[in-house]
């Protein structure tokens, strides 16, 4: 088991394994996303209050989920990198940050586009919007710190500490802004006993969530592969790879 983990986390093995995994993730992402979009945009009935404009939810909600999920992944990977000094975990954390920031930005933009017809304004200082905006700031802080430090390993460890501090702060920020001001509609999927969302809307939503996860897997592996090549450029297997081409 440990030998397997050790092998898996070696950059060389990761490079070749991820090369084989990426097409699988990419194609299944495309398939699930097309099905999800079809059901979301054509099959799901219009909302009785919000009409057709609620359909942006099929992008907005998964993007918001991803924004939090990726932060957690980044912090856990950063923590693993800090404790066990596993290079691959550092690389994953560093490659996740820009993707997470993009998802956060996407959630904010789609929220604004939806808010204009629904609330009559592009932006309100509502708790969840504010928390999402602060999450974007936290991502940008991690990215900025990562790029400010020259040495890649020091940069990874420093941003690992920052991501962990951010994780402790996210619930505090979340509840403090919630308490400060809220206008947002309550969570409608996580109420386990009876979701207040109809099944015909829930299925495309979950399909889109899966598609976004697969998209993240594809892109993070692509980014991590580049990062691995960059960091290992002096090792023999990368030299072999270059001379083979």
């Amino acid at each position: 088991m440990w030998a397997f983990l050790h092998k898996f986390s070696s950059p060389k093995y990761f490079y070749f394994l991820s090369g084989r995994l990426i097409p699988w993730f990419a194609w299944s992402c495309l398939a699930v996303m097309l099905v999800g979009l079809y059901y979301g945009l054509f099959e799901a009935p219009p909302d009785y209050q919000q009409g057709e404009s609620y359909r942006i939810m099929f992008v907005h909600v998964p993007a918001a989920w991803m924004s939090m999920f990726i932060y957690m992944v980044m912090a856990v990977a950063g923590g693993i990198g800090l404790i066990w000094h596993i290079k691959l975990a550092e690389i994953m954390a560093a490659s996740s940050a820009p993707i997470g920031a993009s998802f956060t930005f996407l959630a904010l933009v789609t929220g604004a586009l939806w808010g204009k017809p629904m609330w009559g304004t592009w932006w309100v200082w509502d708790a969840r919007l504010t928390a999402e905006l602060i999450l974007l700031f936290l991502y940008l802080g991690v990215i900025a710190l990562n790029s400010a430090i020259e040495d890649k390993r020091t940069a990874a460890r420093a941003s690992g500490v920052l991501a962990l501090v951010g994780v402790v702060n996210i619930p505090i920020i979340h509840y403090s802004v919630e308490w400060w001001n809220t206008l947002h509609q309550g969570a409608s999927v996580t109420k386990l006993d009876a979701p207040s969302i109809h099944i015909s809307m829930l299925i495309p939503l979950l399909l889109m969530a899966v598609a976004f996860k697969l998209y993240y897997a594809t892109v993070v592996l692509m980014r991590a592969r580049c990062e691995v090549l960059d960091r290992e450029r002096n090792s023999s297997w990368v030299q072999d790879l270059i001379s083979a081409k």
Binding site: I134, F137, L138, L140, G141, A144, L145, A148, I149, T154, A158, V161, L162, V165, G166, N169, I172, I173, S176, V177
Partner: peptide, 23 residues
């Protein structure tokens, strides 16, 4: 402590710290 080794840590420091001050 994270930015002390950097030559121009000042602006970066505000980017790191201000979001954490919000609560």
């Amino acid at each position: 402590a994270l930015t002390v080794g950097l030559r121009r840590g000042g602006v970066l420091l505000s980017l790191l710290v201000l979001p954490l001050y919000i609560p």
